[in-house]
Design a binder for these strands. Structure first.
Length: 242
DNA sequence: TTCCAGGCGTATC
DNA sequence: GATACGCATGGA
């Protein structure tokens, strides 16, 4: 069946290309004031509503963010961004790969990873990745980080299910037990995989934003939603860097 | 050739 | 706790 989800000012192109995810679902298309899911079962509807965060009011969020001058500019530049609820394990592995790397190459590595180790091109399981020979992915020094993450998830040393219920600081600490997961990667996983919207990943681009526009810290109007605000800032600065 | 990319681990102070 | 440096790979 086809299924329409009404969402105010979502833009799929921007949402999937603003750096929060490195592969996109193939069964979604843009509609006038929302999106259309194609070839889905009725039982899958809640999954997609959750994925696109239909419970969040972005009109209200952007209005709140726009109290800050810089945020207003960033929101007006790309009002169609929405932060998705992605799969936690995929987010974990993806953002481990992302470190000191560029988005194009990250996407390429993940595509090849799905092709080589995933069931029908799906993202591979922790069980498979934990034992796989990853050398053909050419992930360089990150290879052992991927293996360590997959192994810890597979053995249950890190329980992703439980991280959902942990407060932000505790969850962050838990993820950082994985070799190759520091503060920035942990924050990306918490934001994009666990939808902890207070997580504010500080990468090279955001550090530029901070020193240039927010030398005295983040504005109060993004409190509780720092991560979503971050995504608007990230996309804006990346596309307007002189 | 050198620099950079959604950083992190390690050594050193 | 802060700072410096090496790290795999590929594109500009």
């Amino acid at each position: 069946m086809e299924y329409f989800i009404k969402l105010e000012n979502i833009d799929l192109e921007t949402t999937f290309n603003c750096g929060q995810c490195f592969r996109r679902p193939f069964n979604v298309s843009q509609a006038e004031n929302g999106i259309i899911l194609h070839n889905i079962k009725k039982a899958d509807i809640p999954y997609w509503e959750n994925y696109f965060c239909t419970d969040e009011d972005y009109t209200e969020l952007i209005k709140r963010f726009s109290q800050d001058k810089i945020m207003k500019v960033a929101c007006e530049y790309a009002p169609g961004i929405r932060v998705l609820r992605q799969d936690p394990f995929e987010a974990l592995i993806s953002f481990i790969i992302s470190q000191n790397n560029n988005i194009k190459r990250i996407s390429g590595i993940i595509a090849k990873m799905c092709e080589c180790f995933g069931e029908n091109n799906a993202f591979p399981t922790a069980e498979v990745l934990a034992e796989a020979d990853l050398s053909l992915l050419k992930t360089g020094y990150r290879t052992r980080y991927i293996t360590d993450a997959a192994r810890k998830v597979h053995t249950g040393e890190i329980k992703l299910d439980e991280i959902h219920n942990m407060p932000y600081n505790e969850a962050r600490h838990e993820l950082m037990k994985i070799v190759g997961v520091g503060e920035k990667v942990a924050d990306c996983v918490l934001l994009f995989g666990f939808h902890k919207t207070e997580a504010f990943p500080r990468d090279v681009w955001i550090k530029r934003v901070m020193s240039e526009y927010y030398p005295n810290g983040l504005p109060d109007c993004i409190k509780g939603y720092e991560g979503i605000a971050q995504q608007f800032l990230f996309h804006y600065i990346r596309n307007n860097n002189n």
